[in-house]
């Protein structure tokens, strides 16, 4: 099958992005949920903590940073103010941060969200949602989803935010 120059360029870009991701976060983590990489992000519709409906599909056209976290996860609490800052900084370029809490109850999530003054929507997670994303078996866990709704990067565990931001900026620069 002959590929057009555009197709070859897309494949090359995807390969480079995957290689960069794995160099940044460690190959074991990237390939642990390798079945999701470069595939459509599993869709979900949930109520956020304010009662509004959050539908992942509505964020097509934006780069989505999907962060699984919990109030008992100390490294998560280091990351979240950074994600808030990115939402402010990169929001006009098309970034949307979404937090998915793996807490069992919403009350501590609301308290921490208020304390950290988070500026992005939060929803409560579930076993089913976690499994659709390849399993959430250690926090923090962050996915980057491109403007076309495809998973482009996965960062498992405590990760240098510079590595995440680098991938984020790359995706924001893509149509």
């Amino acid at each position: 099958m002959r590929r057009t120059g555009l197709e070859r360029g897309r494949i090359l870009f995807a390969g480079l992005l995957l290689a960069a991701c794995c160099a940044a976060c460690g190959a074991r983590s990237c390939f642990a949920a390798g079945s999701l990489l470069n595939k459509e992000a599993p869709e979900f519709v949930r109520k956020d903590l304010n009662g509004a409906t959050l539908n992942l599909a509505h964020y097509r056209g934006k780069v989505v940073l999907l962060n699984f976290w919990a109030t008992w996860c100390a490294p998560c609490q280091v990351e979240m103010p950074i994600f808030s800052a990115w939402q402010r900084r990169y929001g006009p370029q098309g970034l949307q941060v979404i937090g998915i809490s793996m807490n069992e109850e919403a009350a501590p999530v609301r308290r921490l969200s208020a304390r950290l003054k988070l500026n992005y929507p939060l929803v409560m997670g579930s076993v089913q949602l976690a499994e659709r994303y390849g399993g959430v078996l250690g926090l923090p866990l962050t996915y980057l989803i491109d403007r076309n709704g495809r998973v482009r990067a996965r960062f498992q565990g405590q990760t240098d935010p510079i590595a995440i931001e680098k991938q984020l900026r790359l995706l924001l620069s893509q149509p």
């Binding site: 074991r28 983590s29 642990a32 399993g135 078996l137 250690g138 498992q156 565990g157 405590q158």
Partner: peptide, 10 residues
């Protein structure tokens, strides 16, 4: 050291 996924499942 890291978590259940990295140090057990993987």
């Amino acid at each position: 050291p890291e978590n259940f996924e990295v140090d057990w499942i993987d």
